[in-house]
Amino acid sequence: MLELRLVQGSLLKKVLDAIKELVKDANFDCSTTGFSLQAMDSSHVALVSLLLRAEGFEHYRCDRNLSMGMNLDNMAKMLKCSGNDDIITIKADDGSDSVTFMFESPTQDKISDFEMKLMDIDSEHLGIPEAEYHAIIRMPSAEFAKICRDLASIGDTVVISVSKEGVKFSTRGDIGAANVVLRQNTTVDKPEEATIIEMNEPVSLTFALRYMNSFTKATPLSNIVTISLSSELPVVVEYKIAEMGYIRFYLAPKIEE
């Protein structure tokens, strides 16, 4: 028996919006720790890792570990039927081939339930070891989204370089080239407007902008994004989900042959 009650139901809609462009079908894993997901895009270039901790739910009952295969477009269709202020409860019985989403209006005057068929999904689960990163950039998520969107209008790839000068995002395309340099800035009115660049070693890596732009669909989940770079590793783009957990995107770099 599984029963997860999320008072801020809109959070689940935002999570779906953040990942459904990257991943079509995925297994949601439920355990005593929380509600989680790890899935790769079809080309195995990018990976999304989601955790919504059990403590973040108003009520969290998960009698045994359960993996539920869902088509994310269908799940998004169902969640779209909830009101923005609704409380969402996810329910499933052991061994059932369906999951139920229950939506309650804040005043309890409207209660709906939507049942969705589950699917069997063969998914490869990757072990991602803890790593030391050469550079970690913490910046406003909206600024990162703007940079990715702007650069994608010029080129297909972005070179992210971190040096003593700051962090540089560069691209090149048929019509020209673009460079955006951000310097550390902590003299801001609100902490979420700060740009903090932590550099252990200079690093420069190339990534496909198409994936970066897809990651920025998570912007409504957090004001801050953290980008972790190491020359031998995929980049990690993390959006923290307040009091609940995180959504992390991993993207393999491109290398010159």
Partner: peptide, 14 residues
């Protein structure tokens, strides 16, 4: 020409 690496070149199946 830049070649796109795959995640499985970095991380192993758990």
């Amino acid at each position: 020409k830049a070649v796109q690496l795959s995640l499985t070149e970095f991380y192993r199946s758990a």
